[in-house]
């Protein structure tokens, strides 16, 4: 096991239970775990190397928890991110409202971060069109407006998942000479939050 080298930081954002973890699981481990829903605690990090032409780009993917409880923490996950996959559930219109919130947040705080709007659970729509609550064209218009890419995926069938992350890696590759890559790790200039207090026992 060697030290982890990460080229591009990618953050997964979106309302809870839209399927961010399943998406990462499908992309990284090529599997879909069936079972009771389990929310992510805090965030999970995975590094995944992928080929772009003859180069290897390693995506450092931050799979964040959707729960409101961790919202205050989310800044550290998208800071310096080169791509943000903003997920919404195609069968849940409220999750798209939440996606809009994340887009606004990213536009305000991370202007260099490319946004990828990702509708999830497409297999449910294919099984029953009546379940669709988020219109394809509405999202496409929104994507055009904010200069984002738009994908509809299914982690269950794997449809469009590799394409999404491949696009993220390609975009990073073609833009990497434009923006200075941000150093990962501790930022010594950053004022340390005083979260730690002496023990009183």
């Amino acid at each position: 096991m060697t030290a982890m080298r990460v080229d591009a930081k990618v953050v997964m954002l979106g309302k809870e239970s839209v399927g961010k973890t399943s998406l990462v699981e499908r992309y990284v481990h090529h599997r879909f775990l069936v079972g009771p829903y389990q929310n992510t605690i805090g965030a999970a990090f995975v590094a995944k190397p992928t080929h772009v032409g003859d180069k290897v780009v390693t995506l450092g993917i931050w799979d964040t928890a959707g729960s409101e409880r961790y919202e205050a923490m989310s800044r550290i996950y998208y800071r310096g991110a080169r791509g943000a996959v903003v997920c919404y559930d195609l069968t849940d219109s409220s999750s798209f409202q939440r996606a809009r919130f994340w887009v606004k947040e990213l536009q305000n705080c991370e202007e260099h971060c490319k946004i990828y709007l990702c509708g999830t659970k497409n297999d449910l729509i294919e099984a029953d069109r009546g379940l669709r609550q988020v219109d394809y064209h509405d999202v496409q218009d929104f994507a055009d407006e904010i200069g984002a890419q738009h994908f509809e995926t299914s982690s269950k069938t794997g449809s469009n998942v590799d394409e999404l992350f491949q696009k993220v890696a390609e975009d990073y590759n073609s833009s990497s000479f434009e923006v200075m890559p941000e150093e990962q790790g501790v930022d010594l200039g950053q004022k340390k939050d005083s979260y730690f207090y002496a023990c009183c026992h």
Partner: peptide, 24 residues
């Protein structure tokens, strides 16, 4: 939480008997 099996987890956690005021 199965979520820690997916990758490396990073989460704020308060250890209340140590200090109820802040997160580790």
């Amino acid at each position: 939480s199965s979520s820690f099996r997916e990758g490396e987890g990073w989460t704020p956690v308060c250890l209340p008997k140590f200090n109820t005021a802040g997160f580790f």
